[in-house]
Design a protein around this nucleic acid. Structure first.
Lengths: 351, 351
DNA sequence: CGTTTTTCCGTAAACGTTTACGACAACACA
DNA sequence: TGTGTTGTCGTAAACGTTTACGGAAAAACG
């Protein structure tokens, strides 16, 4: 495919080239490169120098084939159904943390894009069966998650951002405490005198949506407030979703005086709908969002919400995954299987 | 690593298992699987059935090693310097299109996360040198881009989203017409009576920032308006950036009556700053954004801007890349090297 | 100086594929 | 019946690594 130009170092120099160049065997070269003990100090030196000079880097395929490990972890990323145009800003900082921690252990992170609609199952199978990665990281877990069942059944190593009822307790999972957030949001609103509190949520299949709503319900009951189905609406988890369904709860017989939105994008769409109805968030109605991003802070009015620490979250999940992999496990007993991080409310101007 | 359970199909079944199970040679199995002509019709049938039954999928490492090709394309993704917390919603739909088209040609898309700060150079080298992908897709091209120089110099196949002065014309590149957008934005504002038009832009290293600004300058001159450096400010390409620098142009001796923001996030931050100064966008001042996302549509007031068709963009770039790869090239002469797509203004309420 | 240990290195097999080559049978043709 | 052709398959090499093993030389020890 590529014309090999003479003179300059070839794009693909193999361990054989190195060996030939140094007049030693490939075995020695490999051992020198991999830092093994049984190689003379200055032959190692010479090998390292030659490697740099000839621009040598080991061929990953050869390496993986021999070792039976790819040294890479796959993250399955995919547009959410209904989330046509917008993307999920949530993941970039998370992935940054994930990648940073994995890199420290010599692992590559590869993000595998799914096609919209098939909910990753097909792509996931492909990654697993062709052994493209040593482990998988899943996000946006569902309450019953066939991806998790598939992986657990096969004994393929994985970790999840988010909990699920599938797959038992066999895998590390890290989650945010959306239930507490939902509950805290209600508490705060009630303490400010609200009793008719609406919730704009995504599908309950998505586990964070489910958790948010159980927190919401429990808190309402705790305060002796009946849960009014007319104050709850489900929409796609983006601006359009919030825009479409927010009017529905506002048209309820007894209007809500506060709305809790699942996330920033839905809140943005919802606020647009409110504005069109002549209702001003933070003034005529209180607004809180469960998962906020910088968007909430720079919105007018600045939206009160719960800001997750995404990059540390990514780092931590990487650590948990590593601890569950035999090849990287520290002293036994360091395996962390479940963790739920608190979500802190950041009070701003919208409630 | 994984305990092999007896009875159920093993996770890793090789071509040897298949051959043994069918009592034929691995060569025949391979030929049958790969649809070669010299294999009997019903042995092929038997092989296919057995493959399904034993859950066989070819080991990618073995395949790549033998063929000298990985069948995967790498997209380099990385948090922009200064873009700490937020992410880039821009890319998800683009990647969706890219992946869809590549999949149609049997190629996998893998997204490689860079560490913040090193501007991909290190990760890129790693991908290229360890031969993890057959080609690379770059985004956020800079005016002088060392990544492009590196790849072009090596003869490694790649394509870019965005133009650059580096690397000659040796690679396919697809871009949006930011210059025209900048110019159109000015035209529109001038036609509505504005003469003091500010611009909030990112670093001029980023080629789209540069293009936007040349369009802006040219249009101003065309209208006989002098470019006032006091009306131009540079910030990080996120909410915080817009928030920080917008006050600077507002404090100019002669206040602007309109602002053009580079993108949605900067506009959001900028509008926040304006609100804090008691200035209402769309009322006291006109606002246009160059690269908009659904965010602009659902903001209040809805922001006028130029919406790119991201998914088609991804598909198209995939096509251009494929056409440049000998292994996928159609009839000679189908290589498309440069393309610039128009950007259409969507008028909303902010100007 | 002889023996044991240590240090260092080369050899070769193995990982799972693909593919060039040749072999063998069946068949067609004269 | 002999020769050529076609269809089908097995053999073995190759891709670039890593690593178990053994051997030779050097060092240590008595």
């Amino acid at each position: 495919m590529l014309a090999k130009t003479v003179g300059e170092p070839s794009l693909a120099s193999s361990i054989h080239d190195l060996a030939r160049h140094l007049n030693i065997s490939i075995g020695t070269v490999s051992r020198a490169l991999n830092g093994r003990a049984d190689v003379n100090a200055d032959t190692r030196q010479r090998v390292l120098e030659a490697a740099k000079k000839l621009n040598y880097a080991p061929n990953q395929s050869g390496r993986s084939l021999r070792q039976g490990a790819t040294h890479s972890i796959a993250f399955m990323l995919q547009p959410h159904p209904g989330d046509q145009q917008y993307g999920e800003p949530f993941f970039i900082p998370f992935l940054t943390g994930l990648q940073a921690r994995l890199a420290e252990s010599g692992l590559d992170l590869i993000v595998v894009m799914g096609a919209p609609g098939d909910y990753q199952q097909e792509r996931l199978r492909r990654v697993v069966e062709t052994r493209r990665a040593d482990a998988v990281v899943l996000a946006w877990t569902r309450r019953e998650d066939e991806r998790i069942e598939y992986l657990a059944e096969r004994g393929f190593p994985f970790a999840t951002l988010g909990r699920s009822r599938s797959g038992g307790k066999s895998y590390p999972s890290l989650d945010l405490d959306f239930e507490k957030a939902g509950s805290d949001a209600v508490d705060r609103l009630v303490s400010r005198g609200h009793r008719r509190i609406a919730a704009i949520r995504p599908s309950l299949d998505l586990n964070f949506g489910h958790l948010f709503m159980t927190g919401y319900r429990k808190a309402l009951r705790r305060h002796g407030i009946e849960v009014d189905p007319g104050l709850i609406a489900e929409g796609f988890i983006n601006e359009a979703g919030g825009y479409q369904v927010t009017p529905r709860v506002m048209l309820s017989k007894d209007r809500p005086t506060a709305i809790i939105f699942n996330n920033d994008a839905m809140a943005l769409g919802g606020c647009k709908a409110l504005a069109e109805m002549g209702i001003s968030p933070g003034h005529d109605i209180a607004v809180i969002v469960i998962v906020d991003t910088p968007l909430c802070r720079y919105f007018s009015p600045a939206l009160t919400g719960f800001r997750p620490a995404l990059e540390p979250l990514g780092r931590r999940l990487a650590e948990m995954l590593l601890a569950s992999l035999p090849a990287f496990a520290g002293p036994e007993g360091t395996r962390i299987m479940r963790e739920v991080w608190p979500l802190e409310l950041i009070a701003r101007d919208s409630d």
